[in-house]
Design a protein around this nucleic acid. Sequence first.
DNA 1: ATTGTTTCTTCACAAATGTGAATGAACTTG
DNA 2: CAAGTTCATTCACATTTGTGAAGAAACAAT
Lengths: 191, 191
Amino acid sequence: MNRLSLHTYLQTELLIDINQEIISQFFSTRELGKGEYFIKTGQVCKHLGFLEKGFVKYYKTDDKGQEVVCDFAKESDWITQYQSFIFQTASPLSIIAIEPSTLQIISFDNLQLLYAQVPSIEKHSRKVIENVFFSALERNNELQVLRAEERYVKFAKENPDIINRVPQYDIASYLGIAPQSLSRIKSNYRG
Amino acid sequence: MNRLSLHTYLQTELLIDINQEIISQFFSTRELGKGEYFIKTGQVCKHLGFLEKGFVKYYKTDDKGQEVVCDFAKESDWITQYQSFIFQTASPLSIIAIEPSTLQIISFDNLQLLYAQVPSIEKHSRKVIENVFFSALERNNELQVLRAEERYVKFAKENPDIINRVPQYDIASYLGIAPQSLSRIKSNYRG
DNA sequence: ATTGTTTCTTCACAAATGTGAATGAACTTG
DNA sequence: CAAGTTCATTCACATTTGTGAAGAAACAAT
């Protein structure tokens, strides 16, 4: 999939004119192979990451030892576990690369310094968090109101790219559906 | 139910020593009879409210004209529709009193002035919003993972007070369950 | 108390989803 | 290519939940 460098992202998406030196000063590059972790359950999340390339999933393990997928992120998404990052407490979930991924990561302290130096980034940061919040509310509503089939159809429509990059059992888990049921839903839906 | 004045709340819960005059300067009292609206779908939410007494529910109307309960709030909760309040845009949902309620309300502009004058309130405000955000994530997880019966049991355990103040069909709606099913769940669960 | 109205419960049946097992397809790895 | 592994599909059946109708219970108004 396409790569979008942090520098280009800031320049073209946010119209923030910042030179590469400043970025290099605050961020460092991190590569994750498929199956490598950005953060594991129980660890403290030390960094915020910008995903230049690749794909990750957020998941946790429930009481019965079952893996539950909480979210996905792809190119040009910011990733972190907010609670853990902000309060420097143990993360309740893990973030794992399901494709080889390239990140630009920044520590909490450096982020504060960057905010001070480039205030428009703090403004953007607030917007990103707001959007995560509003997405969570919308997801609540979908899980509350829609049946399994409706959830899948909506998800597939809004995330056609993800459908092809993620194993189906992960999508099923994210939607709160048994993988076999999702399989049935798909075949019923076509014909 | 017990009333908790905004003044007492700030004093004893937040340990913010603020005199009643300042509160009166920024806030005004609003009474809502049962069935009266704090905000209706489509309107812009002009105020943030502190619920001194009473009980409200958040709801919206889905495609089929069905009412869907999104949230509840009770004494000593802050209420507003964040998107609408922050951006001054049309609210996607309504907030209605289901018990006679007393609110202390403050406009967006006054809130900014109050923040400037009493910074600890801004700090607290951020915490409140954070908690709403984290609750939304937890609710996501519950709706994703738990069956109807489990959702009800958990809700009843964590909100024994609400159970007795709200009609059962509202709780059913909030949990994404048909009212008859909730009735069955309750009787199965006891014996 | 009597009448209405609303809410809750119960029932029989329908529809949706979960579950375990079997199979086949796709993908790795040697 | 062959063997092994992982993933997706399908099936039969179990369980959960939805639905409409009927009645009971709770509540409100006169």
